[in-house]
Design a protein around this nucleic acid. Sequence first.
RNA 1: GCACCCUUAGCUCAGUGGAUAGAGCGUUCGCCUCCGGAGCGAAAGGCCAUGGGUUCGAAUCCCGUAGGGUGCACCA
Length: 564
Amino acid sequence: MDFKNEIAKQIAHAAGLQAEEVLPFLEVPPNAEMGDFAYPCFRLAKVLRQAPNQIAAQLAEKMQDVAFLQKVEAAGPYLNFFVDKSLFSRSVLTKVLQQQADYGKSELGKGKTIVIDYSSPNIAKPFHVGHLRSTVIGNALYQIHQALGYHCVGINHLGDWGTQFGKLIVAYQKWGSKEAVEEQGIQELMRIYVKFHEEAEKDPSLDDEARGWFVKMQNGEEEAIRLWKWFYDISIREFERVYKMLGVSFDAYTGESFYNDKMAPVVEELKEKGLLKESEGAMIVDLEDENMPPCLIIRKDGGTLYATRDITAALYRKKTYNFDKCLYLTALDQNLHFAQWFAVIKKMGYDWYKDLIHVPFGLVSLESGKLSTRHGHVVLMEELLNQSISETSRIIAEKNPNLENKDEVAKQVGIGAVIFNDLYNSRIKDVVFSWERMLNFDGETGPYVQYTHARACSILKKAGNTFAADVDFSLLGDAASTAVCKLLADYPAKIAEAAAKLEPYILTRHLVDLAQAFNKFYHDNPILNSEEATKNARLAVVSAVAIVLKNGLALLGIQAPEQM
RNA sequence: GCACCCUUAGCUCAGUGGAUAGAGCGUUCGCCUCCGGAGCGAAAGGCCAUGGGUUCGAAUCCCGUAGGGUGCACCA
């Protein structure tokens, strides 16, 4: 039963309106003592030509006998509703306990396809904290949409093509060795890449040489491709190690190199449509009428660019997946780039340009300043995860030394902490990375939610993981129990809201709210030590909370150990 | 110069048209002979950057200003 909907109907009936006119304005009072739902009557004042206070009083009068309402009260201009608590908890809890792992899922996105482009790191560079956000937010949006019934396609659009590989080839030939690259992997690639930049400052002809090698790659020349592929394989192996730790996977690894042979026809199409024009030796699409700088398509040396590849990839994805939406998870500083090439797609006459969505997030920096791979000014992803895991191990050794499979749990909690932290605020906020904050597991953190889940599991275990089916819901009338039930009831709507706003934090925060409400419930109400019927009813609450916390964490890409 | 984003408690952030602006961290004080203290309770801490406007009502919407961040031609 959807109480909000039913109340809207009742108000509409009493006020002579349609339920749809009422529903959007139904709200939750700031304080639970004021009621479970509220309707402000200000907006009726004009229509009914009466003061809001009077309207509220009259409507309250008319609704005294509604069965599922315990009480309707006029508080000044507000109409406050108190739902029948036992009816409410029955409705929520039976649903959660029946649906279990499916609670929260829906068919909102049935038949729709959503392509999500996330993580997309540049290969041949180490995977660092700057890559975390795209990876983790993208993965959460993937899981969330999947729960809503969408068909999701996760794409890792690797930065695996471009002049930087020409640079790498030159650097390898001049200063590298096969042994060193095989032994040290990306670290060695990084070393020679940095060396290249140092040398190129003194000798600009190195840049021309690098561009030359990239042209060879584009032409498919054997030696160039062989080296590139070698660098590629080494990088992917290292990335996959990190993805495995994070529990993230992709449906396709079609990176930029994948589009190498697919760009020519697209450039041809731009030409045919009269969009391409020469400027300063390069080929551009003019966007003056869109109030933006031009979009560069072909360099004066004939090379392709970022935008060329993104446009080609978008056309390919539309053809291959026929998506309803295509999301791009990148930092906010790429705003203009996306706005530009989206506009090019529009000019090409494709009305699905409006289904292309840049999902930006704020920049990550260190307390000591900007991230810079070249200057070694980074925190590597593996280092971060390992630090978090070892901090977790330390805490386990202190608090729960007899825990079985400690190492496994330390991984789940340590990695969960990192993921949770990144999904806790709205995307757009800049992040200043801090070890101190990162490794503090008190308060609104992943470990807190996991701990709450483990605690709930522990109680259930002590009760033999079972309770009687005929729950007496009237025993759950206290404020703490009601607060928990309300949050359980709101959970499905929060998933939908997170998807609509493309903001996983909506879900993350809800889980924190639920964990807080549960911990209060736990402190206020003895469970195992209470009288049989009460114990049974409270176990139903504990069980439902465990289910929802676990489901919610799963959508964020975080595991929920039963002990920690 | 033009464009985009941000500004709410000491710090990190929720709240985006309605009732007394909320969390967490940090600080201070309580709570384990009692279901897991990675917990719970309480205190202190706010001119919601600023000036106008719209509205019965603005932290929330619109315009201006200031401060901070970012982007603007052959990197991605």
